[in-house]
Simulated scan of single mutants.
Amino acid sequence: MLNRAQLRIEIRNRRQQLSAQAQQDAAIGLVRQLLPCAEVLAAQHIALYLSNDSEIDTTALIQALWQAGKTLYLPILHPFCAGYLIFQHYQPTTPLVPNRFGIPEPKLNCAELLPVQQLDLIFTPLVAFDSLGQRLGMGGGFYDRTLSQLAANHRCRLIGLAHDCQQVPQLPVEPWDQPLHAVATGSRLLRF
């Protein structure tokens, strides 16, 4: 089994080799998989992210969720608690600024923040996932640390978004890893 660093390199390379057409097809398929799904239908406050580094494109999903009347939130690197995320209301007019990794995030507006415990659904990015619902992120631990604030019986659902090529047979798991309830790709929705 490859270690976590090796897996990140291998799976990111797979993802980056996808054609523009494959990326577009996956983004459209993602909307088809998620809009009728029970977790999305039941949710009002949904956190997601803006795609980066050949991640499955969330642009069409964002538009579809807005059209469905959902309230969306984007992650922001926590300004005072290093290694954590906070979530801010996201609308078409929300000003975005690059964070220290160059990823666009909302310009901080404390009046627009929602505690993670009040989110109904969080769509997470990932580098790799397995059939047990484990996710491998970029290695910074931002999502794992932030999601650890949710109690095991909390109602918030966690769904990873990925390309099919990001699935691996089994991920090496660490005690701090936060498992997902489901993973959605352009072709399927896997529940765990």
Rank of each mutant, 00 (worst) to 15 (best):
L136W: 10
A43I: 02
G83Q: 12
A20K: 12
P115K: 08
A27K: 04
Q16W: 00
L119S: 02
C81H: 15
F101V: 05
K70M: 01
A27N: 10
R157V: 05
I11Q: 06
N13S: 14
A20W: 04
T93F: 02
G102C: 10
G160C: 08
E174R: 15
P172C: 09
Y84W: 15
I28E: 08
A182C: 09
R100F: 13
L108M: 13
H45D: 09
Q170T: 09
K70C: 00
P75L: 03
Q88F: 06
L158R: 12
I86R: 07
A111H: 14
L189G: 04
A184R: 02
E39C: 00
F101E: 07
L150N: 08
W66R: 00
Q16I: 05
L77R: 12
L121P: 01
L65G: 01
H45W: 07
E112R: 12
S19D: 07
Q118F: 00
Q91C: 04
L158K: 10
S187R: 14
L65H: 03
Q91N: 05
D25E: 15
D57G: 03
S131V: 05
H181L: 00
L35M: 15
N13R: 15
Q17L: 11
R157T: 09
P106W: 07
L30T: 05
R188N: 14
L119E: 02
F192H: 14
F80S: 14
L85G: 06
S148K: 07
Q33L: 03
Q23M: 13
P95E: 12
R8C: 12
G140E: 10
H181G: 04
H45C: 09
L147I: 10
L158G: 04
G83D: 11
L119I: 00
M1D: 08
L121S: 03
N99K: 08
R191M: 11
Q166C: 11
P98E: 13
L61C: 01
L119Y: 01
Q166S: 05
R188H: 14
M1H: 12
R135C: 06
K70H: 02
R145A: 13
G102L: 07
T59P: 00
I56R: 03
L114S: 06
Y90L: 04
T124E: 10
D164S: 08
E39Y: 06
E39S: 05
L119D: 02
L108Y: 13
V31S: 03
L113E: 05
L50Q: 07
Y84C: 03
P115V: 03
L132P: 00
F123V: 01
I62L: 11
G29T: 09
A5K: 13
V31R: 07
Q88D: 02
R12E: 07
G83T: 12
G141S: 07
G137V: 12
G137M: 10
I11P: 02
C81P: 00
T58P: 04
F142R: 02
T185K: 08
Q16G: 10
L77N: 12
A42E: 14
C37F: 15
R8K: 12
G139Y: 11
L114I: 15
I46M: 01
L121R: 03
H181C: 00
C110Y: 12
A64H: 07
L30P: 06
L180T: 01
A26M: 05
T58W: 04
Q44L: 05
N3H: 14
N153L: 13
A47W: 01
